[in-house]
Amino acid sequence: MPKKPIFTKEQVYNKAFEIFKSEGIEGISARNLAKALESSPAPIYSFYNSMDILKHELLENAKQLFLEYVKKERTDLIFLNIGMGICIFAREEKELFRAIFLKESLGKRNEVIREFRDLIKEEMLKDGRFDHLDEEFKIELYLDCWMYAHGFATLIATNYFDEISDEFIKTRLMESAATMLYQRLENYKK
């Protein structure tokens, strides 16, 4: 008769997600997970043939959660919703934001950040207000907005602000976007 499992796949995943949030994706190993579950690594492999499968699942779920924040309609402006989503994600999911965007890692960090950045770019391209602009202008504006929103979100995630409201986030993003757009248009005319 096979040995009864010590824990469920859901328990393994939940513990892995905790580790992911606190140590980043590079903290996910059979040894770390087994230690956190107070067992040997063997039972973990009954649910996940490799740690890469588990890491992939963790990243996919983190991306989906992130996209929920970025796609949420807070205003009628897609661009603004994306910026607000990044910042609110940083406020409400500080550890996850830090694990994805701020932890030092050995190798995959830039790839993961690029994936998240590209998800944002795809959403930004859905904003029809920019359809008439040439590609170079849109890319430069996108990069400006990405850098500002990411920097602002980083300040939020690292507790630069004690408490920050959605309205404050919205106001700061609107003011910075207006400035960036004005500067881009001025440079574009030259």
Rank of each mutant, 00 (worst) to 15 (best):
K9R: 15
E10N: 11
K15H: 03
E18M: 13
E18L: 14
F20G: 10
K21V: 14
S22M: 12
E23P: 05
G24K: 15
G24P: 12
G24W: 00
I25F: 13
I25P: 10
G27T: 07
I28P: 06
I28W: 01
S29N: 05
S29A: 04
R31C: 04
N32S: 10
L33A: 02
L33P: 02
A34D: 01
L37T: 00
S39M: 09
S40E: 11
P43Q: 03
I44S: 09
Y45T: 14
S50C: 09
M51K: 13
M51Q: 14
D52N: 13
D52E: 11
I53M: 01
L54N: 11
E57S: 05
E57M: 09
L58K: 11
L58W: 06
K63T: 11
K63V: 03
Q64P: 02
Q64K: 15
L65W: 04
F66A: 04
E68Y: 14
Y69Q: 07
Y69W: 12
V70P: 12
K72D: 07
K72P: 10
T75D: 01
T75Y: 00
L80V: 06
L80E: 02
I82N: 05
G83I: 02
G83D: 07
I88C: 01
F89K: 07
E92T: 02
E93W: 04
K94Q: 14
L96N: 11
F97T: 14
F97N: 01
F97M: 03
R98M: 12
I100D: 05
L102R: 09
K103D: 15
E104T: 13
S105Y: 00
S105V: 08
K108D: 08
N110I: 01
I113E: 10
I113L: 13
R114D: 13
E115R: 10
R117H: 13
R117I: 10
L119H: 05
L119V: 01
I120C: 11
K121S: 15
E122I: 09
E122V: 12
E123Q: 11
E123A: 04
M124E: 13
K126H: 15
G128A: 13
G128C: 02
F130G: 02
H132A: 11
